[in-house]
Amino acid sequence: MPCPKTQHILQEYFADDLESLAKEKIESHLLVCEHCSNELESLLLTQNTLTQWKNERTPHWNRGMELFRREHQAPISGFSLWHRLQWAPTVTCFAMMLVLLLNVNFISSQEGFSVSFGSTSDDSSVIAERLVAFQEEQRLAMDALAERVEDRQVSNNIELLQTVLDQNQQTTAENLNRIYVFFEQQRLRDLEDMRIGYQDLVDNDYETIRSLQQLAQFVSYQSPER
């Protein structure tokens, strides 16, 4: 026979920390109520079926190691020789730039080596003279070059003009030929037209004479009848 307390009793039975009084109450009810005890037994059996679960082995996977390694690149320990050497080209370039900018002179003589920065006034006058001479040389070279360019330009122009004239002459001769042929053809065509015209005229005249003859015959034939 169903018991109205079953849900409450069994729900509390599975509670975590039952007070001893409540526990006694539930156990005493279960002793006397067959429905509740049967229900509990079947629920415990079901629970037992579930607890027979055996942990399965996890399939192989990379455990996020790639992501971890990518995002946690190990920091570079110390400052190794290789990492120092990486700066060598930059440092060399910088040093060369300084040498150029400061106009550093290394002079070696019998007395030893000397390093000087910047340039002397003698150097500047020599440079100025050389610059003037260089400019003069450049001017002369430029003039010669301009003259050569002009000469070449003139000869090119003459050649071009000659070629154009030749072409023009040739074209004119061709055109005149073409006109002559055209006039000749036109003259022949006109002559032919005239011949056909005369022929037509002669044919017409002949037809007219025949018609007049027929008319005359007709008239002469009609007259004796009257």
Partner: peptide, 19 residues
């Protein structure tokens, strides 16, 4: 940043989470 520690941590729990 220890990959070994991360792997060990994952290994400890992967079976429980998978099941």
């Amino acid at each position: 940043g220890s990959p070994l520690a991360w792997e060990k941590l994952v290994r400890r729990y992967e079976s429980k989470i998978y099941n």
